[in-house]
Each structure stands twice: as C-alpha cells, then as structure tokens.
Simulated scan of single mutants.
Amino acid sequence: MARITLVEGDITEQRVDAVVNAANSSLLGGGGVDGAIHRRGGPEILAECRRLRASHWGRGLPVGRAVATTAGRLPARWVVHTVGPVYLAEEYEERAGLLASCYRESLRAAAELGARTVAFPAVSAGIFGWPPADAARIALGTVAGVLDGDDARAGAELAEVRFVLFGAEMYRVFERARGELLGPEGC
C-alpha cells in the first residue's frame, strides 16, 4: 500500500508525478493554491485549462470532479485540478461527500496518467472555509480508503500520497487527524 506522508511546505516545490490544485470551477487561476500553481507553472497550464473550457468543461469544472493538465514549469509532471466545496454547515452531509469526491477523483485522474506520487493541498480548508480538523479527517480518511482498496483503479499503482500543508498549524491539524484515523505510525 502507498504511504501517506505529511509535509509543511509549498506545494509548487514538490517533486512528484502529480500535484493537485485546489482550483476554482473556471480552471483559469485564482487565489491561494490555485493562483500559486498557475503563477509558478506558467502559461502552459493556463493554455491547457483554456482548451478544457473550450471543449468538455465549457461551463467549468463541477465541484468534486477532477481533470489533469500539464504541470508546465512546476517540478511535477502533471497538475490535477479539483474544485472543492465551500463549507456550509446547513449542507454538511452533501458537501462533505463532495469534498471526499475531490480526493477520490484526483487519485483516479492521477492513476489514469500513471502517477506513482501525488501531492495534495488541504482542499477547501483555506478561503472556502472548511474547518481544518474536519477537512483533515475527510482528506485522510478518503485517501486511506482508496489506498485500502475502495477504488482499485485509483490506488493500485501509487507509492506515495503526500499532503503538503501550508503553515505549522495546518500541519499539526493533519498530524493529529492522521494519528486518530490511522494510528501513531500512519500509513
């Protein structure tokens, strides 16, 4: 089974096969992780995103889905773009399912490309307002489930799923969640 690792750092500096972008539905860049990936990756990513918008994703990428492009100038091979849900407590169950779908669909897209290493940010835990502890629980639980065989196509060839967390506090939140969900050794 693939390892689940946690690092505090900058996702745009990760040398992995696929970096996951917490994108907005337009696929045309934005703030936070999305803006950083587009800036560092350069115009090649935006050009592919524009082609996606001109074809299959004319209305934008739906929440919970994932699509891959080149990584441009990033040290990764591909970027897997996924759109996380905005947190709304009154729609928790539906939106939590969409957040889990971001992780499953991203792993599936990465696996279809032949990726062995994937780096994730904390999807929806920034400007989209998802409470960090719950975002970590959903992220780690979903990824562990995929790697344990919930979706054999998505997890079969992966060697490492890395969560790249911005800031010491987000790292600590994910570290606590990993300990609670996966035990002291994690995966």
Rank of each mutant, 00 (worst) to 15 (best):
M1I: 11
A2I: 04
T5W: 08
G9V: 15
G9S: 15
T12K: 03
Q14N: 12
V16Q: 13
D17L: 03
V19D: 09
V20A: 04
N21A: 05
A23M: 09
N24P: 04
S26T: 15
L28Q: 10
L28V: 09
G31F: 03
G32C: 02
G32H: 00
V33D: 00
V33M: 01
G35A: 02
I37A: 00
A47L: 12
R50N: 07
A54G: 15
A54V: 05
A54I: 12
A54E: 15
S55I: 10
W57S: 03
W57L: 15
L61Q: 01
L61N: 00
P62N: 02
V63F: 02
G64D: 08
R65H: 07
R65T: 04
V67F: 00
V67P: 00
V67Y: 00
V67E: 00
T69R: 02
T70A: 08
A71K: 00
L74F: 07
P75F: 11
R77S: 14
V79H: 01
V80D: 01
H81L: 03
V83E: 04
V83K: 01
G84I: 03
Y87W: 12
L88V: 14
L88Y: 13
E91W: 08
E93G: 10
E94T: 14
E94Q: 11
A96G: 05
A96F: 08
L98G: 06
L98K: 12
S101L: 04
C102E: 09
Y103Q: 07
L107H: 00
A111H: 01
E112F: 06
L113H: 05
L113R: 10
T117E: 12
T117K: 05
T117P: 09
T117Q: 04
A119K: 09
F120N: 10
V123P: 03
G129E: 07
G129K: 08
P131V: 11
P132H: 11
A133Y: 13
D134Q: 14
D134P: 02
A135I: 12
V143L: 10
G145F: 03
D148R: 14
A156E: 12
L158N: 01
V161Q: 05
V164D: 06
V164E: 08
A168M: 11
E169I: 11
Y171H: 15
Y171Q: 13
R172H: 13
F174S: 10
F174T: 13
E175D: 15
E175K: 08
E175G: 04
R176S: 12
R176Y: 09
G179V: 13
G179Q: 09
L182T: 04
G183A: 05
P184E: 11
E185A: 15
C187G: 06
